[in-house]
Design a protein around this nucleic acid. Structure first.
Lengths: 268, 268
DNA sequence: GCAAATTTGTTCGTATGTATT
DNA sequence: CAATACATACGAACAAATTTG
């Protein structure tokens, strides 16, 4: 084969990782050792390691060495409606119960409420024009202490003006905003549409989720627009999830209870 | 600030890209020009460019230069059931119609049928034990001539033995396998569960989708397990989609017709 | 069609800084 | 503090891809 040397080295190491010769968390040789083993210069060895790093197979720790990445036990969020609560997946209280059901420990940051003008993205999701005033309610979520998702919900200001005052308050709406809007304004959520995209994290996201700053690990961005019975958009919820620790499930029709699924191993 | 020089250069260029000073498809200066402009060595400039490449903001073309990436017009697949056809999103014939509805040109590779033993991943998705014999039916899909997704469906061999012979044939089942299984064996698909994950592409995937071999662009892998009325898994469909050109929609409850959505711009 | 010039890709060497043990 | 290991930065040479004359 005529691939460059750094790729050949990377492929050799990759094979060792995927075959299990190099197990999870195990240390690769140091740069010096690999240099000697493959008869390459230090920079070439480093190029090979950078390649593997980009593939998400190894991580380097200054002063320590290079290690095969530990797979994170992913959390699986169900995006379709919970038939019991009628609540969408990942929403409000349903987040807390879904996480604790899996015997994992959920926690959330204090709610952060702001009045803003809708950006293009928000306006498109709410089906309004850019610059319209909206209420944004933002919180960060953790599972077992590690940052897991960031969620921001946007409501047209008009809803608060019409009487849903608590949307403006930086206090949790215990019964959930879906219920609250039904009680306060008789606005009922008839359905929602989730829009799933994947992109590189921005600086704030990489920082919060402790992702490598170079964008190796992508994030899901899920736009959820909720509609009332007339097809009017009443809310946009944008949730950002790091792709290395989150997966999603969608149930359609009649399916057996929950999942015993087990993701395969690392390979192709 | 005390960031390394290559990151400062990268941030400067990034700002120019995100502010629009450097537009889509436009060429950055050559390495030589950037070297002079920033007063750095060639390798340092190259490190900065590599950083931006990892973020998916630029791409380099040997012999030509470095360019701001052109955004691909993404295709949006609806994963929830089509109320008209009763077919799941992205499945069989529904793929062709969904694509042409958007005024884009779908095409598919010849069907490739194999008899295999179920790998761990397949076994888990079909809720059977590893090594059980299954029929795999594989095809590759294109939109407007560019590779868009690869799909493999797995059926327990038992179904063919019980009379669904056409599953073994490398010929399309025009009416769709859902309908065929209903007609041939009176097995009705009562629902399905989609499991969405994101990971780096393997070599074959990167090759087919023409993705950079270093795993910068992730792929979605969607596992769809279809169940009959008794909760028996009758099919597993694994579809791989490059994340740079695919998005998904999930409709729950009553929502307005289709989407006029417009994704925001490039920034954070 | 070919040769030269331009531009990025690969590989080496070397020196110094920073983080961890 | 010293030793070890990775991070950053510079310089240099040649190879490979592309465009230009």
């Amino acid at each position: 084969m005529s691939n460059p040397m750094y790729q050949r080295i990377a492929e050799d190491l990759r094979a060792q990782i995927e075959s299990g010769t190099l197990g999870s968390g195990q240390q690769l040789g140091t740069e010096g050792e690999l240099q000697e083993h493959y008869g390459a210069s230090r920079n070439t060895v480093r190029d090979a390691i950078k390649w593997l790093t980009n593939l998400g197979l190894v991580e380097t720790r200054p002063g320590q060495g290079t290690f095969v990445v530990q797979e994170i036990d992913p959390f699986v969020t169900t995006l379709t409606e919970d038939p019991q609560s009628g609540l969408g997946g990942g929403e409000g209280t349903s987040y807390l119960s879904e996480v604790s059901e899996r015997n994992r420990e959920p926690s959330v940051s204090p709610l952060q409420v702001e009045i803003q003008e809708a950006s293009g993205e928000v306006a498109a999701g709410l089906w309004i024009t850019t610059g319209t005033v909206v209420i944004s309610r933002h919180e960060k979520r953790f599972i077992d202490g590690t940052p897991w998702s960031m969620q921001t919900s946007y409501y047209p200001m008009e809803l608060a003006d019409r009487g849903a005052e608590r949307l403006r308050s930086p206090r949790n709406i215990r019964e959930g905003t879906v219920r609250y809007l039904a009680d306060a304004l008789n606005i009922r959520q008839a359905g929602y549409r989730d829009w799933i995209t994947v992109r590189a994290p921005n600086v704030a996201e990489a920082d919060f989720f402790k992702l490598p700053a170079d964008g190796r690990v992508a994030v899901y961005v899920i736009f959820r627009t909720a509609f009332d019975g007339t097809g009017q958009a009443i809310r946009l919820t944008i949730t950002v999830y790091p792709a290395d620790r989150n997966q999603f499930i969608i149930d359609v029709g009649k399916v057996p209870d929950r999942y015993q699924h087990d993701t395969g191993s690392r390979e192709a």
